[in-house]
């Protein structure tokens, strides 16, 4: 029988000798500090924003719950206590941010980016719980869906219209760095019902889709150009890749 125990020191020595003295070409610490600080700041902001929204919703629910009658009522509990404005956003420590669910933090950051980058006609945005990285936009004409996704590039489209495989009309665009983008627009009865842009991001094919198919006749509030502008944002591209990783980890 083969003596694997005797081989272990030999393998260890071979590994030592193979990589002995290797070092990265550049000092990786300064960039890690820059990126890490930026990421922690974003998470703190997202967590604080989430906490503030939670406080506001809770306050509104408490106010709504106070029974209304003809008799003068004592002040509702929220009026006697410190207001949301007085308390401000909950203090978010790094530990609190670390303890928060990565998925929730991710969604908050995506919402923040969408709010910042999309035009006002996109309406108000909400996060959906059923569906990975899917968000709902609400305008005066109705609701629509915004989805972000990314899959490994192998065997899939790479961002050109020649890839095919999707319904509708495809028009080529490019990001500022020259990355090709394929924008597929699907129409029904002359009205655009969905726009889907695809482009290569690192080793993934990223996709941003806006879809109003569940609301027939509603004009899409966002165009292919809007989605290309979204894709041009470096943070959005990072978030798409991050979301794909979280989806993979969660098995969804």
């Amino acid at each position: 029988m083969h003596d694997f125990n005797a081989e272990e020191p030999a393998l260890r020595r071979a590994m030592e000798q193979a990589v002995d003295g290797l070092a990265p070409r550049v000092d990786l610490v300064p960039r890690a500090l820059t990126l890490g600080r930026r990421r922690r700041a974003r998470i703190r902001l997202a967590t604080a924003a989430g906490g503030l929204a939670f406080a506001a919703v809770t306050a509104a629910l408490v106010v709504d719950y106070v029974p209304r009658g003809t008799d003068p009522l004592p002040a509702p509990p929220v009026a006697s206590g410190p207001s949301v404005e007085e308390t401000g956003a909950p203090v978010s420590t790094p530990e609190a941010a670390d303890a928060a669910e990565p998925v929730e933090i991710h969604r908050a950051r995506v919402m923040d980016a969408l709010d910042r980058l999309l035009p006002a006609r996109a309406g108000s945005l909400e996060s959906m719980t059923d569906g990975w990285d899917t968000y709902i936009g609400v305008t005066e004409n109705g609701g629509y869906r915004i989805g972000l996704d990314a899959v490994p590039a192998s065997g899939r489209a790479d961002g050109s219209c020649t890839d095919g495989g999707l319904d509708g009309l495809c028009r080529p665009y490019a990001l500022d760095d020259g990355t090709p983008v394929a924008a597929w627009t699907e129409s029904e009865s002359g009205v655009d019902v969905s726009v889907r842009v695809r482009f290569q991001e690192r080793d993934l094919v990223a996709e941003i889709v806006v879809d109003a198919a569940t609301n027939p006749g509603m004009p899409l509030p966002l165009s292919a150009e809007d989605l290309v502008a979204l894709a041009n944002d470096e943070e959005v591209r990072d978030l798409i890749v991050e979301g794909a990783g979280l989806a993979e980890e969660s098995g969804s």
């Binding site: 890690a32 990126l35 922690r40 998470i43 530990e95």
Partner: peptide
């Protein structure tokens, strides 16, 4: 790895 380590550094 270093970026993620910094993110969770307090822990």
């Amino acid at each position: 790895t270093l970026v993620r380590l910094l993110r969770y550094w307090p822990r």
